[in-house]
Amino acid sequence: MALISYAQAACQALAAAMRADPRVLALGEDVGRGGIFGQYKGLQQEFGAARIIDTPISEATIMGAAVGMALTGLRPVVEMRVADFALCAIDEIVNQAAKNRYMFGGQGRVPLVARLPIGIWSASAAQHSQSLEAWFAHIPGLVVVAPATPADNHALLAAAIACDDPVIYMEHKELWALQGEPPAPDPAVLGKARVVRAGADLTLVTWSKLVHTAVEAAGRAAQHGIAVEVIDLRTIWPWDRDLVLDSAARTGRLLVAHEAVQAGGFGAEIAATVAEELGIPVRRVGAPRIPVGYARTLEDVARISAERLLEELTTFVQRDAQRRPAA
């Protein structure tokens, strides 16, 4: 079976959506040459420059214009290159796209997808490495999606384009070349997580690139007799409370891991919810509250490795097992 890359998967999903619906278009810098990650490869040749729109370096207007397009009958896919540059369009996302429907009493809808790749991209330093999903999850009106696999980058992008709400779509900069199984033709359902690996001792919730790190850590934990259930959240908002609570109720322990800074990260929301609902022990793993440095020795401090996850979850399970009355 031929494998497909994370970038190709998204490209195919966008192409399919554009073939099916003339209202779908994409706009952003360098998209006409396939985008800097190859995620728009061949699309301008197929759909022309009026639907794969090359823009000036004008993030605020790229996003603001997309809001205007969405309000008036189009379904724009907005290319922001990396989440860090979307900060040049934060008013257009937070005050305009997210607020429009509510503020104007439901008269308009803003069906746009803004692609804001997150994550550390090796040796790219402080302004190209941020994982800001919690910022957007905090904003009422926005949907936030973070695909971990090529198949999901197809299914979730298709779902995001079909969604009538503004979607912040956060691919990971170090996953573009990841090869995986080809996608199923159906779009995903936004807000549905997936159990990637079943286990009875601990629930490990994560998303984006860290899903792969978590699976690796879970495999090694199994050798130490710890059965970890890994959940790929896939959609950050709305997040799949049912699946997470169900799993955590079974395992009795919840660990949330994300590449984003731990303090104020979305892991805190999940951990707090599980603690409130189930009263079980919860823990978080995230990056220290530091910018990402250029030198490898500095960058490594900001990365969450499989070793780190393994250590965290082993300590968590061992300490908690000592506390629990023997069954």
Binding site: I57, D84, F85, C88, A123, S124, A125, A126, Q127, H128, P291, G293, Y294, A295, T297, L298
Partner: peptide, 26 residues
Amino acid sequence: TNHGKGGSMHIADFSVGMLGANGVVA
């Protein structure tokens, strides 16, 4: 110049008034 924190894209040398290269256009 930046103690390894910035790299090429963020090179800066305040001692000569060079207030920084920048990863964000403009």
